[in-house]
Amino acid sequence: MKFKAIRIFEEEEKTFVSKIVERSIEELPEGEIVIKVAYSSLNYKDALSSKGNRGVTREFPHTPGIDAAGTIVSSKVDDFEIGEEVLITGYDLGMNTDGGFGEYIRVPASWVVKKPKDLTLKETMIYGTAGFTSALSVYELIANVKPADGEILVIGASGGVGNHSVKFLVKLGYSVVGVVNTEAERDFVLSLGATRTISREEADNTTGKPMLRPEWAGVIDTVGGNPLSTAIRSTKYSGAVTTCGNVAGGDIPTMNVYPFILRGVKLIGIDSVNCPMPKRLDVWNTLAKSWKGKNLESGVVEVSMEGILDKIDEMLAGKLVGRVILKHS
């Protein structure tokens, strides 16, 4: 059987090009489950993979797409049947295993999640890795911080993880402040229910002071680097900070122990890639039910294979607002 897929080729050393090609299922990697993909979504790892980032993808040619949702067409295990609607986020999908930017994937059964009945396939990809990571972040935050404790800062509020975090926190009764770069981002984040926004410059203190004026009861950070450092140093007593990204850098500059030993601030790392399956299923059940909002599709753009290649460039240029999902024909 032939199908279409986006493939990233290294034509010359460190020169990578994206092409839409025709492939066969026999070319896919080994696995117990073959899925006809209906939807995927665009994440930062996909953008990096498409440009040949060896920290994400080691071997090329390769098909990105760390998220996928669709229907099982072949199964070698009893737990999954032909015709079942399923989804995958994380693990090695789209990194070194051909991913959801192809119309078919073949994967280990241990990666596959049965689609919750209260979500459509499209809705699972509106969430995707971004929504799942956001849910894990909010889970940790609400275990440590209550709405009455004060404002929650969301760094990168207009991005995939950030905008879902704003939606979840608002639904749970928290007052949210979003960090934004442009007026368009500001309008978008306020439309999601954020109380107010601040600029990237306001969230990026470079004075080198070991402690800053306490402002935030809690923080959801999606970018790392000095904005994360600034957030930790300006979190209130006994507050909590979650972190899940590194687009602003993998280091935490101007960092010291004082926020932790003098204010009791908690720094919580979030990993969605290898999240254990029991917790993964619990989170997806929550996303399908109590955390599912009426504005789930707000800020979502649906594109074809051709369209997603343009969106990759927008994402890497820092110009992408909201969530992009790929619909296969």
Score class of each variant (00 low, 15 high):
residue 313 D to Y: 08
residue 20 I to N: 14
residue 52 G to L: 10
residue 214 P to R: 08
residue 72 I to G: 02
residue 28 L to H: 04
residue 66 I to P: 11
residue 59 E to G: 09
residue 204 D to V: 13
residue 237 Y to P: 15
residue 220 I to P: 09
residue 142 I to C: 09
residue 235 T to P: 01
residue 293 G to T: 13
residue 292 K to L: 09
residue 116 P to N: 00
residue 129 T to C: 01
residue 38 A to L: 11
residue 116 P to R: 08
residue 42 L to R: 03
residue 193 G to I: 02
residue 299 G to P: 00
residue 110 S to I: 13
residue 123 E to K: 06
residue 118 D to R: 11
residue 104 Y to L: 06
residue 92 D to K: 07
residue 171 K to L: 00
residue 301 V to T: 15
residue 295 N to C: 04
residue 169 L to T: 06
residue 13 E to Y: 15
residue 104 Y to V: 03
residue 167 K to Y: 04
residue 301 V to F: 11
residue 87 L to H: 08
residue 17 V to L: 10
residue 263 R to E: 03
residue 139 Y to S: 15
residue 81 E to P: 12
residue 40 S to V: 12
residue 326 L to R: 14
residue 124 T to K: 04
residue 248 A to W: 09
residue 113 V to M: 11
residue 4 K to D: 12
residue 97 T to D: 13
residue 35 I to G: 01
residue 194 A to F: 03
residue 271 D to R: 11
residue 206 T to S: 14
residue 77 V to Y: 04
residue 207 T to H: 07
residue 97 T to S: 11
residue 73 V to K: 09
residue 137 S to G: 06
residue 116 P to V: 00
residue 144 N to I: 06
residue 92 D to P: 06
residue 34 V to H: 08
residue 19 K to C: 03
residue 129 T to Y: 01
residue 276 P to R: 05
residue 268 I to T: 03
residue 255 M to I: 15
residue 240 A to I: 12
residue 153 L to H: 04
residue 204 D to T: 12
residue 114 K to V: 05
residue 239 G to A: 01
residue 313 D to M: 08
residue 292 K to M: 05
residue 201 E to W: 10
residue 159 G to V: 09
residue 16 F to P: 08
residue 85 E to H: 07
residue 262 L to I: 12
residue 315 M to H: 06
residue 79 D to M: 15
residue 323 R to I: 07
residue 323 R to W: 01
residue 326 L to W: 06
residue 288 A to S: 05
residue 144 N to Q: 15
residue 86 V to Q: 09
residue 92 D to E: 12
residue 149 D to M: 00
residue 59 E to V: 13
residue 55 G to R: 15
residue 157 A to W: 04
residue 197 T to A: 01
residue 283 V to E: 12
residue 57 T to K: 10
residue 200 R to D: 04
residue 235 T to R: 01
residue 303 V to I: 09
residue 256 N to M: 06
residue 322 G to C: 04
residue 65 G to P: 10
residue 194 A to T: 05
residue 274 N to F: 15
residue 96 N to T: 12
residue 58 R to T: 15
residue 128 G to V: 02
residue 310 D to H: 06
residue 327 K to R: 08
residue 316 L to C: 07
residue 273 V to M: 07
residue 305 M to D: 14
residue 260 F to K: 10
residue 10 E to V: 03
residue 98 D to V: 11
residue 52 G to D: 05
residue 62 H to V: 10
residue 229 S to P: 08
residue 22 E to S: 12
residue 172 L to E: 01
residue 287 L to E: 04
residue 54 R to L: 06
residue 242 T to K: 02
residue 300 V to L: 04
residue 248 A to M: 07
residue 216 W to L: 01
residue 49 S to K: 06
residue 26 E to R: 15
residue 119 L to R: 03
residue 155 I to M: 06
residue 297 E to N: 00
residue 59 E to H: 12
residue 80 F to P: 11
residue 317 A to Q: 00
residue 271 D to A: 01
residue 186 R to D: 00
residue 157 A to I: 05
residue 64 P to H: 05
residue 237 Y to V: 14
residue 223 V to H: 03
residue 71 T to F: 13
residue 16 F to I: 11
residue 254 T to N: 15
residue 17 V to Q: 11
residue 97 T to E: 08
residue 8 I to A: 02
residue 184 A to D: 13
residue 109 A to E: 08
residue 267 L to V: 08
residue 5 A to H: 10
residue 279 K to C: 08
residue 298 S to Q: 14
residue 135 A to P: 11
residue 28 L to T: 10
residue 25 I to Y: 10
residue 241 V to H: 00
residue 132 F to N: 05
residue 295 N to G: 09
